[in-house]
Simulated assay, not measured.
Amino acid sequence: MSFKSLGLSEPLLKTIAEQNYTQPYPIQQEAIPAILKGSDVLGIAKTGSGKTAGFVLPILELFQDKPAPKNRTVRALVLVPTRELAVQIGVVFQTFGEKLPRKVKTLAVYGGVSINPQMIALQGVEILVATPGRLIELLSYKALSISETEILVLDEADKMLDLGFADEMKDIFFLLPKKRQSILFSATLGDSVDAINKNLLKNPLRIEIAEEEQNIDQITQTGYFVDPERKGPLLRYLIKTQEMKQVLVFVSATRTADNLVEKLNKNGIQAAAMHSKKSQGARTEALNKFKSGKLTVLVATDLVSRGIDIQFLPYVINFELPRSPKDYVHRIGRTGRAEASGEAISLICPEDVHHFKIIQKKMGKRVTMNESYDLNLQGY
């Protein structure tokens, strides 16, 4: 199937070809025609399945035949859980819309940065990509109107609910017009997401893309039994003795990330943290330095790590285990890509042993475990 067969116009098809998109992903094959027809859509698909272009392309197409809206009236609203995703989707809109006959202004807004430049930039915006908290702030200042919004997109709805945005989302839904097109994408369909689906969508086309199992055969997995007070020294010991030049370290909390980075830097290991409480500029700078090899260690939480895509990352270390086996596989899958080998190391405290056994059982692989108690960590 080609993009042309989905009902997209020549200007969009030209840009698609220039971006080296050869054929649509499965979710795009179903979502694009449905959105062009004005149908509501419920898509269950993981990150990286192609869903962003699945709503970006038809929205840009639909707006080509419409006059510019009234001042500060947002025609399409895309709600997302994180700054990274807001920026990413904003760039996709701008990339595909760059050569269209009628220019459609897109803006991404999010917290962690000054609100005033965003308020000024809202002039003439038709497509707004926003995190819920910052959108409510802007609405409270009457910087924009969503009372005539024609299309609502919820991207990664499950993550927004996990982050506690349920109340903000309800407030936003209340301000939207009853007559509109709604599109909901989520990696999973839990009870909370299903409740939004039933209250928000009208006879939606349901698209469910089965998640392919991630191939982790290229990854060497090892673990170390360690007491909590020796965890930090063990991490530094491994980085230094194995001469690691680029290692992604996963933690569960932002406070842990900051503390870890402080101690790594004090011990001569260049490190930076990447988490939701860092400014957008700090996160972008840290990621760029890490990718270019100017930074040895990037300490990240699961939420923001989805924006980290490095083809030949040699090491991943689980300083703390994730809650689910699926998240564990996603974490270690950051290494061992493109047929390259990679190594994943987990630091296991006594209270983690049972949970790690469950992860291994679900994964279907046994991890080689090492004792760390005989290691001399003095000075690390």
Score class of each variant (00 low, 15 high):
262 E>W: 02
267 N>M: 08
266 K>H: 11
239 I>T: 07
257 A>S: 11
255 R>M: 08
250 F>T: 08
262 E>H: 03
246 Q>K: 10
252 S>F: 01
248 L>W: 02
258 D>H: 05
269 I>L: 05
255 R>V: 09
257 A>F: 01
261 V>A: 03
253 A>S: 12
258 D>L: 04
249 V>I: 14
258 D>N: 13
257 A>Y: 00
245 K>R: 14
261 V>M: 02
264 L>P: 01
241 T>P: 02
252 S>A: 13
242 Q>K: 15
249 V>G: 05
259 N>H: 12
265 N>G: 03
269 I>K: 06
242 Q>M: 12
248 L>C: 09
260 L>E: 08
259 N>G: 07
261 V>Y: 00
266 K>R: 14
253 A>N: 10
252 S>I: 05
263 K>P: 00
245 K>M: 12
259 N>C: 03
247 V>M: 01
265 N>H: 09
259 N>F: 08
247 V>Y: 00
267 N>Q: 14
240 K>D: 02
260 L>M: 09
267 N>S: 14
240 K>P: 00
269 I>M: 06
257 A>R: 00
249 V>P: 01
264 L>N: 00
266 K>C: 01
251 V>C: 12
269 I>F: 09
249 V>N: 04
257 A>P: 03
241 T>A: 04
252 S>W: 01
250 F>H: 05
242 Q>R: 13
268 G>S: 11
254 T>C: 09
251 V>S: 00
268 G>E: 12
268 G>A: 09
248 L>T: 10
240 K>I: 10
248 L>A: 07
242 Q>F: 07
258 D>M: 05
248 L>R: 02
250 F>R: 04
239 I>G: 00
260 L>H: 04
253 A>V: 10
242 Q>G: 07
265 N>M: 10
239 I>E: 00
267 N>W: 09
258 D>I: 01
241 T>F: 02
259 N>Q: 14
245 K>W: 01
258 D>S: 07
269 I>A: 04
265 N>K: 12
249 V>D: 06
256 T>D: 04
239 I>C: 01
263 K>F: 01
249 V>S: 07
255 R>N: 11
